[in-house]
Design a protein around this nucleic acid. Structure first.
Length: 598
RNA sequence: GAGCUCGUAGCUCAGUCGGUAGAGCAACGCACUUUUAAUGCGUGGGUCCUGGGUUCGAUUCCCAGCGAGCUCACCA
């Protein structure tokens, strides 16, 4: 329980104070404030809303009988003793209000209690409002009620809790010391509320489908496995609700949505947490074009509800969530084709394997010229960069080693120079092209996969402004309906904001024969070692056989959307309790383990 | 999984070119009846993340481990 002697001593000291408080006739752990069950405490927010605008001369001149009397409960976050009087700041629901306690107003006993209070304690006060000499709205306390004691020391009052790890592990401390952090989660709640309101008013039904599934379907990801004892049955935590929601559309719930957790047994990063919140919705008789419009409306609406504006600042970029562009995947690759690899490819270059190979090779050659360690061009580039950024040592490095050299100097240097950062990103991207090239030439992959890799490499990191990318390759979309004009692409889009993917949508594949075939293809890939390929879901095929109407469906990452709307750079900042490694020395105890050590 | 960086008092952080450490806040004591990062005086508080190595001597240098952050990989 205690990290140190300091904490042990403090705890003992506070226990003594609790006893002293009880000796004053107060309960150490009372169960309500105010004690009278027919009365309610006043929220600080309400008090401020009413009195913030009333000036001191008006408020302080009121006769005693007309003074505004309030009862407030809260946590003490600052306290200033001053002999026979003192101040404290109470915090309640993220709002703060100062109280003023003086001996001649509260009496000996209450003042003795005031002197036993510590930072972090919860108290209740009643009294009247006034403004101090400096104009601060303050409660002139008449009665003081002890509510609960903080037995541990609070973080430093000025800086708050800054240690990132501690903020995640002890979110409760983060929340009451860092009000910015609290604000993020208030906004998250508003996001959920706005999303629900958006769909509810459009006639969608909210549902909850299984989190534990016998077959983990609906996405390509590795699942968590669990086991039901009585049925002696292995189950997976779901990686997506998709196949269940479409069963519901078969069942006649034409407009349906679900907001719930997905679980994917994969790495963690600033954009990934093993459990994350997904919105999925389906609309019968609609296709992906309908969903594009709906998506644009939804995102703008949520932003407006949460922030009061559709404009956000994210990673030093100004983004208007009401202004969208729509590009086909191939057009996006053409548009974002690196300048150094000009001329840009043409649409027909993506049509055949040979022409695609030639196109990627061309990019690769540029990459090679810039990136390979003994190349003249890259040495020259490094010299230019060294001169431009006043880092003579850079000329000693190859592009590759600079890219890998992420020392603090280099990181700072990038932070302060946008152009340098772009060059850095460019060399990274070009590096990625190598992998595209390799996959095309060595693994004899389908064209679609290469196009998709190319897109991810050169386009995706640049998609800061809201962008819908449509017409995905069939090869990477096992659950989407093919385009009637071109069987190589499916009626699918993803949308990107701030440089990452936020949502994914498509016209749902509803041909049971084709679906079965695609599952079988996936099984082949699974047998080939791809443990993220889909498993066969016979019942889902049976559901399709009963007839799924033409349907559009979409998934949106709520955490990522919240990141954008709160300016959070890490997904962990928008998840209350992100997954962390076990704390050292905190092996989990159960009934069978040894007795308490303290 | 890889690289880089970090781990010093409850908190926020200094520092030691190798000789077992400091500040502010918090805590404790005293003073103070309009302060607000209150103030003034005084006191206590440290396995310098853990384990090895080098050394007369390691918190500091080296190696390994643990934890974290960032970047990458993975993740359509």
């Amino acid at each position: 329980m205690f990290e140190s002697e300091f904490e042990r001593n403090l705890f003992a000291l506070r226990q003594e104070k609790l006893k002293a408080i009880e000796a004053l006739g107060q309960s150490a752990y009372p169960n309500r404030f105010p004690a009278e069950e027919n009365q309610q405490a006043d929220p600080i927010a309400d008090i401020r809303a009413t009195w913030n605008s009333i000036p001191a001369e008006q408020l302080n001149e009121l006769p005693d009988t007309e003074r505004p009397r309030v009862a407030v409960a809260g946590r003490i976050i600052t306290i200033r003793q001053q002999g026979k009087a003192g101040f404290a700041t109470l915090q309640q629901q993220g709002q703060r209000l100062q109280i003023y306690v003086r001996l001649d107003a509260v009496g000996e006993q209450a003042f003795a209690l005031y002197k036993l209070l510590d930072l972090g304690d919860h108290i209740g006060v009643s009294g009247y409002l006034f403004r101090t000499r400096t104009g601060e709205l303050t409660i002139h306390v008449e009665t003081l009620t002890f509510l609960s004691k903080a037995m541990l020391a609070l973080p430093e009052k000025y800086h708050g809790l800054a240690d990132v790890e501690a903020r995640y592990r002890q979110r409760y401390v983060d929340l009451f010391t860092n009000l910015d952090s609290r604000e993020v989660f208030i906004k998250r709640a508003k996001v959920l509320k706005a999303v629900r309101n958006f769909f509810d008013t459009r006639g969608y039904i909210e549902v909850e489908t299984p989190m534990m599934q016998p077959i983990a379907g609906g996405a390509a990801a590795r699942p968590f496995t669990t086991h039901h004892n009585t049925l002696d049955m292995d189950l997976y935590l779901r990686i997506a609700p998709e196949l269940y929601l479409k069963r519901l559309v078969v069942g006649g719930i034409d407009r349906v949505y679900e907001i719930n957790r997905n679980f994917r047994n994969e790495g963690v990063s600033t954009q990934h947490n093993p459990e994350f919140t997904m919105l999925e919705f389906y609309q019968a008789y609609a296709n992906y074009h309908d969903l594009m419009t709906l998506t644009e409306e939804l995102i703008a609406y949520v932003a407006q509800e949460v922030n009061g504006t559709t404009v956000i600042e994210y990673n030093e970029q100004t983004i208007d969530l009401a202004k969208w562009q729509r590009l086909s995947m191939i057009q996006a690759i053409i548009d974002y084709w690196p300048e150094i690899a000009n001329p840009k490819p043409q649409t027909q270059d993506f049509a055949s394997k040979d022409s695609l190979f030639a196109t990627v090779s061309r990019l690769y050659l540029v990459y090679e010229q810039l990136y390979q360690s003994h190349d003249e061009a890259q040495t020259k580039l490094m010299q230019v960069m060294a001169a431009r950024y006043k880092r003579p040592d850079l000329s000693d490095y190859s592009v590759g080693s600079v890219v890998d050299r992420e020392d603090q100097d280099f990181i700072d240097w990038q932070k302060h120079d946008k152009e340098a950062r772009l060059n850095f990103a460019e060399s990274r991207r070009i590096g990625g092209v190598l992998h595209v090239f390799m996959s095309l030439s060595e693994k004899n992959e389908q064209i679609g996969k290469t196009i998709y890799s190319l897109f991810e490499t050169i386009v995706e990191p640049n998609l800061f402004q809201p962008t819908i990318i449509y017409d995905y390759p069939t090869a990477v979309s096992p659950l989407s309906k093919q385009s009637p004009e071109n069987p190589e692409v499916v009626e699918r889009f993803e949308f990107f904001i701030g440089g990452f993917e936020v949502g994914n949508a498509f016209s749902e594949l509803n041909d049971p024969v084709e679906q079965k075939k695609r599952f079988e293809d996936q099984l082949t890939q699974r047998a080939g070692g791809d443990d993220e390929a889909h498993q066969m879901d016979e019942d889902y095929v049976r559901a399709l056989t009963y007839g799924l109407p033409p349907t559009g469906g979409e998934g949106i990452g709520i955490d990522r959307l919240t990141m954008l709307l709160t300016g959070s750079k890490s997904i962990r900042d928008v998840i209350l309790f992100p997954l962390m490694r076990a704390e050292k020395g905190s092996e989990i105890r159960d009934q069978r383990s040894e007795s308490d050590t303290h």
